[in-house]
């Protein structure tokens, strides 16, 4: 009964499905980040930011924009994969994917790429809104200093949090467990990772604590690629990010093998 199929087609179909899915909820993916980033920029960038003097000499809004962009990337890549799986658990779609000739690797990569794309769309929109604010406050648009590094950190960040989303969504048995991860782990790590502040002003003890946070390296790597400043050296950042990508990939794989495809 030999019936061989092109392995790329199921993989590309899954990616297409992921993209189409988030495109159907445009208010979440496009409108919501415009509103939230405008508010952040208005309150932190314009109002409070004018009173902030950073040790690295950058205008606060220049420092803030990459932080907001990467925060959008982190949240949306995580939400894309986790909500895709959770809604599929409700609808029963996961059973279709499970009985189709699709490997676990294909599922993980397809969801990872879906997450990168959604996260990048949100980061891009946040960046565009940020540029407008930047132009009016600083007088020019914010250039990307290291485009290749920027692309690398965008991909790594999107993948890491998409993989996290897969892991949590498969392991979670209830909505509570899913939102607990977001509330107690993802948001604190992101906020304490340097979205709004540099750690240079912190007590040395808290600076050391910040170095234990993997999100800190991601945010600083992303910011370095855009504006050329970071609280940590680039090599360490790249190594930590690559390691985080491998670890989260393995976690996602574990969750697919051990987790439940059953309905909620």
């Amino acid at each position: 009964m030999e019936k061989t199929i092109n392995n790329w087609i199921p993989f590309l179909t899954l990616i297409r499905r992921e993209i189409k899915r988030f495109m159907k909820v445009m208010i979440q993916t496009v409108v919501s980040p415009i509103v939230s980033s405008s508010l952040y920029l208005l309150i932190f960038g314009v109002s409070l930011g004018s009173q902030v003097n950073l040790p690295n000499g950058l205008p606060y809004i220049t420092f803030l924009i990459p932080g907001l962009m990467v925060m959008g990337l982190i949240n949306n890549s995580f939400q894309n994969s986790s909500s895709s799986i959770v809604t599929s658990k409700f609808s029963g779609d996961l059973e279709d994917i499970r009985v189709a000739p699709i490997t676990n690797h294909q599922i993980i990569w397809a969801m990872g790429i879906g997450g990168i794309i959604r996260g990048t769309v949100v980061a891009f929109i946040t960046g565009v809104v940020g540029m407008i604010f930047h132009y009016f406050m600083v007088g020019d648009f914010l250039p990307i200093k290291h485009p290749l590094l920027f692309a690398m950190f965008t991909v790594l960040c999107g993948l890491i949090f998409s993989f996290c989303g897969i892991f949590i969504a498969f392991i979670a048995k209830t909505f509570d467990q899913l939102s607990a991860f977001s509330t107690f782990i993802l948001i604190p790590l992101t906020y304490l990772g340097g979205v709004f502040m540099t750690i240079q002003g912190l007590h040395p003890f808290w600076q050391k604590v910040c170095h234990l946070n993997p999100v800190f390296y991601l945010i600083n790597g992303y910011r370095y690629s855009m504006v050329g400043v970071s609280d940590v050296d680039l090599t360490t950042t790249v190594v930590v990010c690559l390691l985080a990508a491998v670890v989260t990939y393995l976690m996602a794989m574990y969750s697919l093998v051990k987790g439940s495809f059953a309905r909620w």
Binding site: I9, P10, T13, L14, R17, D96, P101
Partner: peptide, 13 residues
């Protein structure tokens, strides 16, 4: 769309 995706899962374009 559902049937198109389902075909894709089985490698059929």
């Amino acid at each position: 769309e559902i049937l198109e995706f389902q075909s894709g899962y089985y490698g059929i374009l």
